[in-house]
Design a protein around this nucleic acid. Sequence first.
DNA 1: TATGAATATGAAAATAATCTTATAAAAGGA
DNA 2: TCCTTTTATAAGATTATTTTCATATTCATA
Lengths: 90, 90
Amino acid sequence: MSRNEMTASYLKALGHPVRLMIARELIQGQKCVGEVESTLNIRQANASQHLSILKINGIVDCIRKGNLKCYFLKEPEKIEQLLDILERYQ
Amino acid sequence: MSRNEMTASYLKALGHPVRLMIARELIQGQKCVGEVESTLNIRQANASQHLSILKINGIVDCIRKGNLKCYFLKEPEKIEQLLDILERYQ
DNA sequence: TATGAATATGAAAATAATCTTATAAAAGGA
DNA sequence: TCCTTTTATAAGATTATTTTCATATTCATA
């Protein structure tokens, strides 16, 4: 997979409203699947699948905490910087 | 369309290998459809369609020059900054 | 080890994106 | 006006993504 394809895949992973919103939520701090599910008001399976796509693309990672699985941004500053650039008006 | 949806749509537009490569090419300077077509080795119709998606999302704009239609990045620095962040290794 | 809570996965249906071919439209020049 | 070049668009086939439901898995704890 070329660098261009890797970058495109990363952008595509973020380029879905639910996944982008998950990333925004995770800027605030880590969340378990159930919290993502209820915050975004989506089905559990769907939350899990979107998180999986973010994980595959290196955007999030997770740790198990007992019964829960907590997802967090791997590079929170990177996400913040991207959003800053994307959403500052010029 | 919410800000989140707008941003997701912008990311999605860039999140295709062909369109991302077009954006990279346009950092060098404006190109007409035929140049995009031959540089990326894709069909004319496909080049036109990808450019249209970039245009709808405010990533490129174009001017007619006689027979040709020249596409260019609307915010080249924004694209450069995004690529810098996405591809600098941390 | 059985149960319950949380998460992941498989499969199917619904929807959307992509690519191709054929053709239309726009503009310049003979 | 007719022809040529360039670009856009329509339509269809194909492929990919998204969502849902049902079920499996994982782990803690009774």
